[in-house]
Amino acid sequence: MDSISQQLPSIFNVAAYFLENNLVPGRSEKIAFYYQDETYTYSQVNRFVRCTARLLSELGLERENRLAILLPDTPEFIFAFWATIWLGAVPVPINTACTLDDIQYILNDSRAKVLLTTQAWQEKLTPIQSEFLDHILLTDGETSFLSLITQQNEQFPCAETSRDEPAFWLYTSGSTGRPKGAIHLHQNMVICAENYAKATLGLHSNDITYSVAKMPFAYGLGNTLYMPMAVGAAAILSDANNAFDIITDIQRYQPTILFGIPSIYANILAVHDIAPLDTSSLRLCVSAAEQLPKTIWNKWRETYNQDICEGIGTTEFLHIFLSNRLGECKPGSSG
């Protein structure tokens, strides 16, 4: 039997794959993303991505050029990420928790030609020490990114990239030195979605995912962006980073899958007496990024009658590559 990679056509653009597969009848008007008080359907996301691609092309972003994205999890992040790949160029998400020095380093190391960020980040980074940067696009201010893309024509064909061509870069956290860029190919997201989201977690079109890890992390990118899109599910975009805000989000949006990390599970348990989590919508809890202590796993099971499906992944492997199976989760084990 051919591998997932071999089943893909040699001419393959992963942005077109995830976007156009969700334009079929019964799915195109389905909600793809929840963001604050707004929702975006798959057809709207497709339209915004194509308009963004045209804007970036007019700015001179060419095939294999890099576009850096320094944003929290927002719709603009999604539009720019997919639009850059649609063009055959390469998005480079940057974690907003990085130091200013590391951000300057990534902008130089990636040789990003365009930066998408906010006015606040632009002010913090001024002067930007990169000879390669030609344009800075801002999501706020008088001429916002959204106002620019809504002026564009959406009729813009995707680049005829190959399945083993670089699609995007993700930088490591730099725990052993400077952040290092991991290059991921057009086929990689499909492989992770098939092997983990579908075959391991059983993700389906009625799911709504909520990820504590943000999209510049490999774990968060899969949880929020391409894995829900692989099955026509929905995802919640949130910048919450403490237990109280996460509990509020879960109560508000009623996700079916919680992609957490050990410290958040511990913090939610710690505030249970004053802010109990309503888990009635959740069918699955997942943990990664670091080892989940047995005590937390057992306490979560005792408190909420839910197993936590733990796995392990890396930036270089893109997502979780070793995992427990649903119904067979073993505390203290990554699979």
Rank of each mutant, 00 (worst) to 15 (best):
P262L: 01
A193G: 05
E64G: 06
Q254C: 12
N242W: 11
S162Y: 10
I136H: 08
F317S: 15
A182I: 09
V212T: 09
F317D: 14
A89L: 06
A213C: 04
S147I: 13
M227A: 06
R66T: 09
S162D: 09
L87I: 00
V45T: 14
P127Y: 04
T139N: 04
A270T: 09
G335M: 02
E20N: 12
F48Q: 13
P228S: 03
S144P: 06
A275L: 10
D140H: 10
P262F: 01
N305W: 02
Y40C: 08
A233R: 09
R66V: 02
H204E: 14
P157Q: 05
A213Q: 03
R163Y: 06
T143Y: 11
Y226E: 03
I236Q: 01
L59E: 15
W86D: 05
A275W: 07
T139L: 11
F156R: 08
R252C: 06
N206E: 14
L225F: 08
I128P: 05
I261C: 10
S5E: 15
G202V: 09
Q104C: 05
P75A: 07
E160Y: 08
Y17I: 10
E316Y: 03
A167H: 02
L318H: 00
Q151W: 05
S57E: 09
Q251V: 11
T295P: 08
S263K: 12
N241Q: 13
Q155R: 08
E328G: 07
F77A: 03
G141I: 05
S43V: 15
D207V: 02
F81Q: 08
Q187N: 06
S10C: 12
V90F: 08
C192I: 12
I85W: 03
S3C: 03
F259S: 09
R111M: 12
P166T: 11
I264T: 11
D307K: 02
I296C: 02
Y17D: 15
I264D: 01
I128D: 06
C98G: 11
E123H: 10
I4W: 09
A197P: 02
R325T: 11
G181Y: 00
G335D: 07
I308S: 00
L201K: 11
R47V: 00
R50A: 10
G311C: 03
P127H: 11
S10I: 15
S162N: 07
L284D: 04
Y40W: 13
L225V: 04
S263G: 11
K214D: 15
D134M: 12
E310H: 05
L170N: 04
A233N: 08
A182P: 15
T279I: 13
V24H: 08
G232W: 04
L258G: 08
Q251W: 05
N223E: 14
E290I: 10
A266D: 15
V45L: 13
P91F: 04
